[in-house]
């Protein structure tokens, strides 16, 4: 097993942990943290493939991760704003109790 395998396996494990958290927890903030973990696992894949690519001078992987981090930050801001807005309306952040679109 060479180093690239290790990085990819580690990132797959991180992705699965995030997915398990996003699917099993009831609090919306924890679901969002799980999604962030999955995004980070994808970023790690980009960096690992960039490091082990035949032409690391091209910077493609690094650029992709920089843009991905910017978009993930925007997603986190909007997601948390939505959670705060839902909390004001339903007085809960439990995703099982937020079950109607028109409140």
């Amino acid at each position: 097993m060479n180093p690239l395998h290790q990085y990819l396996l580690f990132s797959a494990l991180l992705f699965s942990v995030g997915l398990a958290g996003a699917l099993t927890r009831r609090n919306a903030i924890l679901v969002l943290i799980g999604v962030e973990l999955m995004l980070n696992a994808a970023n790690l894949n980009f960096i690992a493939f960039w490091r082990y690519s035949p032409n690391p001078e091209a910077l493609n992987g690094v650029m992709f991760v920089i843009f991905s981090i910017a978009i993930a930050a925007a997603e986190a801001a909007v997601g948390l704003a939505l959670i705060i807005s839902i909390y004001r309306h339903y007085k809960t952040t439990n995703v099982d109790e937020v079950n109607e679109l028109k409140g």
């Binding site: 997915l19 398990a20 699917l23 099993t24 927890r25 609090n27």
Partner: peptide, 15 residues
């Protein structure tokens, strides 16, 4: 409870 009702399914899917 802090876990969703379908937590076992979630864990299985992640696995």
């Amino acid at each position: 409870r802090s876990l969703a009702k379908s937590w076992l399914t979630g864990l299985l899917v992640a696995g």
